[in-house]
Design a protein around this nucleic acid. Structure first.
Length: 270
DNA sequence: GCTCAGGCAGGCT
DNA sequence: AGCCTGCCTGAG
């Protein structure tokens, strides 16, 4: 079934190729195909929003939440106008959304992301799903679910060697073991404050400030999180050495995405 | 060969 | 609390 989601602030290319998610595929016709949990989606850009094609009403509701339809991005962007740099960064990237992704997948994905580049991250995650996920029958070709914690916890480092994830394998296994054993209960983080959630996630080996912030932002939608990577550190050093502007409020994470894209585009990759 | 990629752990002061 | 250094892997 098809659903026309009308909205001003959702650009699929800006959002799905922003580095917060790693499993969307762009099709020949410009639409995107993705999977989260057991839900699949084909989505394409429209002049006044996006058109979603999914299996059920339930799936559509899931994807609307995934694309963060509840947040008023227009209002957030107006709030950001008080800061000139942020105003420019926002207006150029107004189509970026902060997705509400599945927590375990997001956790493992950002553990893999450390000291790594996006093509390799995408490759490792793809191999992880094809090796240990479940094949979901869909009309858009091969789709694999993200493996659950129990499945990953039953594996050894040797089993994961073909992923070529390097030193991150022991972090993946530690995360899977702690989640599968109940030592880390991911759903509880929804109810935690930003600080509590961060401390909780950091009990996992291989999760530091940056990975924890990415998970809190891109899975739990804790927009106070401000993931500080090498790019953003440069931006902060240059523009915000005296501190982040007041107008970011509790939306530092949204500001971070606008700034990240704005400055990344301006840095030549050679 | 070298460096770098959206960091982190472990060890040191 | 803040500084090093090594780290799997693959592309340039």
């Amino acid at each position: 079934m098809e659903y026309h989601y009308k909205t001003g602030c959702l650009d699929l290319a800006q959002t799905l190729e922003s580095g917060q998610c790693f499993r969307w595929r762009r099709c020949e016709d410009g639409s995107y195909v993705g999977i989260s949990g057991r839900y699949t989606l084909n989505v394409r850009q429209a002049p006044d929003g996006v058109i979603m094609e999914a299996d059920s009403d339930e799936a559509i509701r899931y994807w609307l939440s995934y694309f963060d339809s509840e947040t008023d991005y227009e209002a957030v962007i107006r709030q950001f106008e008080a800061d000139e740099t942020l105003r420019l960064a926002s207006s150029e990237n107004r189509g970026i959304r902060i997705l509400r992704q599945e927590p375990f997948e997001t956790l493992i994905s950002f553990i893999i992301s450390q000291n790594n580049n996006i093509p390799r991250i995408t490759g490792i995650i793809g191999r992880l799903c094809e090796s240990f996920g479940e094949k979901i029958s869909g009309e858009y070709g091969g789709m694999w679910s993200f493996p659950d914690a129990e499945t990953l916890a039953s594996l050894t480092a040797d089993d994961l060697a073909p992923l070529r994830a390097g030193f991150r394998v022991r972090y993946i296994l530690d995360a899977a073991n702690k989640v599968a054993s109940g030592q880390v209960r991911l759903p509880e983080i929804y109810g935690m404050s930003y600080d509590e959630g961060k401390a909780y996630l950091k009990t996992i080996v291989g999760v530091g400030d940056k990975v924890a912030d990415c998970v809190l932002l891109f899975a739990y939608h804790k927009t106070e999180a401000f993931p500080s990577d090498v790019w953003i550190k440069r931006v902060v050093a240059e523009y915000y050495s005296d501190g982040l502007p007041e107008c970011m409020g509790d939306y530092k994470g949204i500001a971070q995405q606008y700034l990240f894209e704005y400055f990344r585009k301006r840095t030549p990759v050679e």
